[in-house]
């Protein structure tokens, strides 16, 4: 067994709760919740970023509260990376404000020392992790060496290996190790889970969950893939063509919609169900089997349908993708016409 494989096993297979969370940070068992007060870590006001004629972001307003995990969803070119770079203080807004804890972040050294940005394609100033770590150590006073050592066990990378010889996934892990060990107050990640295998993904989630609990770190993750974020973020924002279509608490989104398969002995029309109080968004019938999506709680749906003596009533799990499509159709006239 190579050294790498061994550390990999030690890092991953210790599944007892005690083994994992210790680490370099305050390992006290005292509840440390709530973490720092509910201040806005990011406050974007009518934020615009244009590149010539291209309006990458065109009037985005959004507040992200401290110690939260925020997911920014959007397709290619929606403006996610631009938003992250503005939040990281790399870009200057064309108009509007990008505030980090109340201060404009562009070229703000104090603010930027508390922010880490893991780019889609990480760039390293030095050729191996060891050199990068000592560079970070000299750069960030918040650098946590024991945490770095622990992260290297969780994401087993050889310190001396050339970073440009590593796979994309390994480079991503190297960038994550460095960013997390710098103990930022704000961690920005572009497509963070991309290129990580399922075990590494779960490990990353566990590390992030602990850092959010311990230090009140705020996480902003941008992704094209809703499914990657749906079990981890507390709020999600949907970015589309440079505009933020909506920001919502994930649980609220999901609980406000219900999907069900129903069969009645006698045919029941969509309008009949609407008259009974269901706010039906989609209605399709295949023979006697009806599938509906409605803006109701599960209880509301059940109580209405049960009154009609159904032969079958199955409430189906709703993917976040479906939730988003319907939120979109509600907010955006064009999309709703396309779906109709």
């Amino acid at each position: 067994m190579s050294e790498q494989e061994r550390t990999r096993q030690e890092g991953l297979l210790q599944d007892s709760p005690a083994a994992f969370p210790g680490g370099g940070t305050t390992a006290s068992d005292q509840p440390q919740w709530p973490a720092p007060a509910e201040e806005a870590v990011i406050d974007a006001e009518d934020l615009k970023k244009h590149f010539g004629a291209v309006k990458a972001l065109d009037g985005v307003s959004c507040r992200i509260i401290g110690a939260s995990i925020f997911g920014l969803i959007g397709s290619n070119g929606a403006g996610k990376s631009t938003f992250l770079r503005l939040a990281a203080g790399v870009y200057k807004p064309t108009a509007g404000h990008m505030l980090y804890r109340g201060q404009p972040v562009f070229e703000n050294t104090a603010a930027k020392s508390e922010i880490q940005f893991v780019a889609d394609q990480p760039y390293f100033h030095f050729d191996n992790l060891k050199k990068m770590a000592s560079f970070f150590r000299s750069l960030y006073r918040s650098w946590d060496q024991p945490l770095y050592e622990e992260l290297r066990r969780i994401f087993p990378l050889r310190e001396e290996q050339r970073l440009d010889h590593m796979s994309k996934g390994m480079q991503r892990q190297a960038a994550l190790i460095l960013a997390i060990a710098a103990k930022p107050r704000l961690l920005l990640m572009d497509e963070a889970f991309d290129g990580l295998d399922p075990v590494m993904r779960q490990n990353l989630k566990r590390v992030l969950a602990r850092q959010v609990s311990d230090s009140g770190m705020t996480v902003l993750i941008a992704s094209q893939n809703l499914r990657e974020l749906e079990d981890f973020c507390d709020h999600v924002g949907l970015l589309h063509e440079g505009g933020l279509l909506f920001v919502e608490e994930l649980d609220k989104l999901r609980l406000s919609l219900v999907k069900a398969q129903i069969a009645f002995r006698e045919p029941v029309s969509e309008n009949a169900l609407k008259d009974l109080g269901l706010d039906i968004l989609r209605f399709s019938a295949r023979g006697s089997l009806i599938e509906i999506l409605s803006r109701n709680t599960e209880q509301e749906l059940r109580s209405v349908v049960i009154q009609q003596n159904p032969l079958l009533l199955d409430v189906l799990p709703l993917t976040l993708e479906e939730v988003f499509i319907y939120e979109l159709s509600r907010k955006s006239y064009v999309v709703s016409e396309l779906l109709a």
């Binding site: 709760p17 509840p31 110690a67 969950a209 602990r210 311990d214």
Partner: peptide, 12 residues
């Protein structure tokens, strides 16, 4: 903290 870390879910 323990539960969020153990399950890899959001502390909130």
């Amino acid at each position: 903290r323990q539960l969020a870390t153990e399950l890899g879910i959001n502390p909130n």
